[in-house]
């Protein structure tokens, strides 16, 4: 182990991790919006919209993220869609993780006791208000775990955008390997950075779960 080298590359790796975190946060934000829309589609009263939402989830989950990324980044210009690598990455990962997250949210909504919705409807609340006021608040604590797992997966899949030239953690690690020929040192530092990011996400997820638990106790 060359500790001097580790000390030298550490600031650069930290900087690159910030970009990885940025990619994760931007994709997560987009992913949540996509997931919410897909879930709305899957509970729609119009059959074609339900089909469309289901097909979307199936296709996004059934094809490799890397290929989706290449379609957007390399195929986009054929449609006049010229994106920066960062934008292409966020767009693809957001739409991809949104499909996965929609499954978790859907599961949580289904897990809420059916009687809750029926009761709310029978005392005159509309479909939208029933969802907003009664179903979603009860479903929220149930979806945190799966949203958290997907966020961890997302943070690791940001490594794929290194292939289209975003200098995030993996790309900068690769650069240091080719310039120093010390793969173990470089990958030890960048691997530790990923683990730190994953640990941070897990911590946030656990904190949020506790928050909801405390909420429920107060409410009870």
């Amino acid at each position: 182990m060359d500790f001097q080298l580790i000390g030298r590359i550490l600031p650069h790796i930290v900087e690159a991790s910030l970009l990885t975190v940025g990619l994760t946060i931007c994709s997560l934000a987009l992913g949540l919006v996509v997931a919410a829309s897909v879930v709305a589609g899957r509970f729609s009263r119009m059959t074609p919209i339900r089909w469309l939402a289901t097909a979307y989830v199936s296709v996004m989950r059934g094809t490799p993220l890397l290929v989706q990324l290449f379609i957007v980044f390399f195929g986009g210009p054929q449609f006049g869609l010229e994106l920066t690598p960062f934008m292409a990455g966020v767009l693809t990962m957001g739409f991809n993780i949104g499909a996965y997250m929609s499954e978790g949210i859907k599961g949580a909504i289904i897990a809420v006791d059916k009687g809750q919705g029926e009761a709310s409807r029978s005392i005159g609340f509309g479909r939208f208000d029933t969802m907003r006021l009664f179903i979603l608040p009860q479903a929220a604590p149930l979806m945190i775990r799966s949203l958290g797992v997907n966020t961890v997966i997302l943070s690791k899949s940001t490594a794929l955008v290194s292939t289209i030239g975003v200098v995030e953690l993996t790309y900068s690690a690769q650069r240091f390997v080719t310039s120093t020929y010390k793969p173990f040192e470089v990958f030890a530092v960048s691997g530790a950075a990923y683990i730190a990011i994953v640990a941070l996400i897990s911590l946030i997820v656990r904190g949020t779960e506790k928050l909801f638990d405390a909420d429920r106790r107060v409410g009870a």
Binding site: T158, L169, T170, Q174, P183, F187, G191, I195, V198
Partner: peptide, 10 residues
């Protein structure tokens, strides 16, 4: 805890 791509490079 780390990405597949990083492990492959390693």
């Amino acid at each position: 805890g780390t990405p597949l791509l990083l492990q492959l490079y390693l």
